Amino acid sequence: MTPVVWHTVFEVLAYSAGFQTYLWQRRRGVDGSVHDRDLMAVVAVGAIVGAALGAKMSYWLDDPLTAFAHFPDWRHLLEGKSIIGALLGGLLGVEVVKRFWGVRQSTGDNFVLPLTVGMCIGRIGCFLGGLGDHTYGIATTLPWGVDFGDGIARHPTQLYEIVFLLAQYAWIRARWHRFTLPGDRFRAFMIGYLAFRLLVEFIKPVFYIWPLGLTGLQWLCVAGLLYYARAVPRIVQTMVMGRKATWARR
């Protein structure tokens, strides 16, 4: 199969596996699972719409010269996407819908394992997608550098991300019952992933530079980390120090 086909196959598998993992959690009554069908539907709609819009808009921000090269040809604007934008867009979509419907229950913890599973599978597709996927790293002399087809050994950043996601989930799972506030497991997932992507983007090709020498995706990571800034000390205490946070949520 061609790299494009491989990428498509694993992208479909990622969505399917993530959704099935979500349903599996509900059947087993995992802590934090949403059991109200109406609430689940509302959350799902907000997440899907927000993620779809965020994924596309983050591509426009990260590589505007390519995205708008043939403007106003709208088809060209739909070509790229980013998981960072999807995560932040999905988060925004859920929060907007919950506020509109008056939902106070935290729902984020439901998505930690499904997102981990789906993103790991999706990154396998990105790795097999080669140069056309634009998720590879810059050139490296390290022994595990990978030639994606241009004769240059590059950082396999897709594999770095898989290793990070699996390690992060194992760390969160080991401290699962130490999280005292609903939603803190998801906050830990997001804070960890955004920090990882902020750093790993420094060893990936740059398509467009924004202020302070950061890429569009890095600025999105910064925005996401600022959104969670108040929760960071509490999450760090739980994750790193291995004990329950003692202060109330603000």
Rank of each mutant, 00 (worst) to 15 (best):
C126Q: 03
I83P: 03
V12C: 15
Q105I: 14
P114C: 03
T21I: 07
I84C: 07
F100Y: 15
M57H: 03
A52M: 14
F111I: 11
V97Y: 10
R28D: 12
F68D: 00
E79Y: 04
G122D: 06
M57W: 05
F127S: 00
V34E: 02
V103R: 06
L88W: 04
L23N: 11
R99P: 11
V94G: 01
A55G: 13
K81I: 08
A47R: 02
L115V: 15
G46T: 09
R28I: 09
G118S: 04
G32H: 01
I124L: 02
R99M: 14
G54N: 06
G122H: 00
D109F: 03
G29E: 11
F19T: 04
V103Q: 08
F100I: 15
T66R: 06
F71L: 08
A41G: 10
L87I: 07
T21S: 13
G125K: 03
A69S: 11
L115K: 00
R27Y: 13
W101S: 11
G46A: 12
E79M: 04
S82A: 14
L88C: 08
A86G: 13
L77D: 01
D63H: 02
W24R: 09
V45Y: 14
G85E: 00
L92D: 10
D31Y: 14
G29C: 10
